[in-house]
Write a protein that binds this DNA or RNA. Sequence first.
DNA 1: CTTATTAAGTCAAATGTCTTGACTTATTAC
DNA 2: GTAATAAGTCAAGACATTTGACTTAATAAG
Lengths: 401, 401
Amino acid sequence: MNDVRPIRAKSGTNHEGTSAHNRRVMIDALRINGALSRADLARATRLTKQTVSNIIEELERDGLVSSQEAVRKGRGQPSTPYRLVPEGAFAIGLQIDRHVTRAVAVDLVGRVLVRAEAGLPTGGPSRGAKVILDLVAGVRSKLAGIVRQSEKRLVGLGVAMPGPFGIDGSGDDPWMMGAWQKFPLLETLTAGTGLDVGLQNDAAAAATAERMVGAAHGLDHAVCLFVGYGIGAGLILNGELYRGSNGNAGEIGMALLFAAGKSTPLEHRASLASLYQHLSADPADPVLHARIDDLASRRDPGIEAWIRTAAADLRWSIHLIETIFDPQTVILCGSAPEGLVNRLIAAIGPLLPSIAERRGRTLPRLQPGMADPWSVALGAAAGPISRAFDPHFAAILKDSR
Amino acid sequence: MNDVRPIRAKSGTNHEGTSAHNRRVMIDALRINGALSRADLARATRLTKQTVSNIIEELERDGLVSSQEAVRKGRGQPSTPYRLVPEGAFAIGLQIDRHVTRAVAVDLVGRVLVRAEAGLPTGGPSRGAKVILDLVAGVRSKLAGIVRQSEKRLVGLGVAMPGPFGIDGSGDDPWMMGAWQKFPLLETLTAGTGLDVGLQNDAAAAATAERMVGAAHGLDHAVCLFVGYGIGAGLILNGELYRGSNGNAGEIGMALLFAAGKSTPLEHRASLASLYQHLSADPADPVLHARIDDLASRRDPGIEAWIRTAAADLRWSIHLIETIFDPQTVILCGSAPEGLVNRLIAAIGPLLPSIAERRGRTLPRLQPGMADPWSVALGAAAGPISRAFDPHFAAILKDSR
DNA sequence: CTTATTAAGTCAAATGTCTTGACTTATTAC
DNA sequence: GTAATAAGTCAAGACATTTGACTTAATAAG
């Protein structure tokens, strides 16, 4: 009688799911193609003109799209293009890193309107939580000062921090990220802000950013190789960020390389952490970023040695990614200084032969992405925007929690 | 005026998409959970009792589900469970390998009803195409002899063959798979059978089989590491087979290992091809499979040496898969003899530490899957069944071609 | 043994969203 | 100036899910 084995099933859908999907498809189309007329949208989405009209009208009422001046193109009634209204929605993005935390406010089209940064005190979340909440509150109120009604249009708070998640902190992390892992961060932030809070690792956030405003814009299959303090891959598969069963997909930094007779995690060889070690630099040094940018741009011999080995490992990683994911393109991005990323890209080429070498390619196998300390925070903010407005399977289903 | 830049957009959906999805969700729920009552289905899918009733009635009319005897469980009216009708649909699966081709007929629940095998003549598709078409025709007519109306319930022909696809055959493949790649196989089969034809690589097929009737049954995130002539990974991500942008996702055999100062594709070290070479065996030998099974089971020292290195490489591969995909489980399967796969699994353990080691795991990190020469053909057949009946995003959208 | 309670399942009307086909409007081509 | 073309609207219709009341059939409780 204790047949309490739960029944596993996917959720069904109904009219509202249909409508929600179609709304998202419109927004997505406008995001990818720029302004489009109702007729264009109808053709592109295979919906009827009437349906498109209804939805566009609704989106316009909601302040998410607006009409532009009619354009005459050949015979027939001129068409009225609609575009996304940047001020239609906002999200806050929060990056939690070892020494600093950054928060940004981003609008519907991915423009950063407010940014703020704070140092994280040692001692982990017990003292850092307050810093973070203050930072978010500051960004939020600055945003409210810039645009009216921003609070009403705030779709959520996205958090990005180094993964992996849900692993027993091994305690060997001197920058206390392990402590952050154990801390009930989402609950604290939800309670402290009243917003919908979502979490991704920093590579995933970078990929989310690239998808909204960067090199992965409009792509359905792209992998962002993110070089930061660690190294990770953000996976855009079938047009959505892939998280894996525990949100840890793409943690390529822990992949093992065999070299010199022993296995080493990729992260120990190609990441800022390894560069800091190579340079005997203090990661907490506030001018380190600028210094590395300078050294890399000047092709300092000390840094070039590291670049050579890191580039070799990245070349291998890119080959692996192409082999395993078969993406349209690989994007190299990072919180590393832009000068360094540029040097890395230069040092990586030419790429190893792989299945990605095919006739009819339209995209380069490897593209530079954002190399900007703020890109992770931007991606963190892009998370809630994407969840709220991009078409995806789960959005169609009935209240998936 | 030549603004013919095509507009890229995802397709919208309508009532039929909703309904199609809900039908698929019911079938999926019955497949995963076994027989369920309408009330159970309503709770599990979050649809109303009425909707479930309508859909079940329709599915019963279509011969896809049937009621079982009512069961009394506590208070209230007894419930009438419904189950999938195995004879509700059939598919033909076709495996094209180097020396042989196999075809099977499979029903809705993944039972193999007919199987047939033929040697492939040297000379590639020019002569092989006829063999294949005859084989398929034979299986089809045998199926028609076993079950009435099978032709009406045939949802398609699934083909599995070694990848990667769409790459210029380098001509160095002595078994002519390169020639098959260039051959217009899908067109030939579509024309020759009148069926819907789909293609996957053999690892993907193995994963599809595991998902329908094997260790990945009901899982949404699983990776099948497939050891066959080559080695590949079949990726079940978000409950669907992931194909990548060109159908080549998971071609892990081409991943590069660095050992002894040079890089070697995994495939050259851990695959039947490498074993054949190690044993100086002729791959076309028809009793080779049985001989290897025997050698492996008897722990022949010659084969044990290969097993040790292959197991080390597989151990690394599993670590990589866990690191990159964060799956619920990894399944080791193959067209390799079962005795060999068992030995490999034994030799692989213990696994390398990875993020897959977490508290609260309910599934083993590594599970044995099917090790059966027919599993690829089964998976090939499972492809069309899955495409026709499993819930997935594309199935909701308007006529996705 | 009777009655209350619980749960499965049905019925009929209502609701929500997309579709259909005719119509209006605005522009260019001839 | 007229025909052709294309964008967009209007109103009715179609379709699938939802709602809420109802029926049926069992167990639990007194």
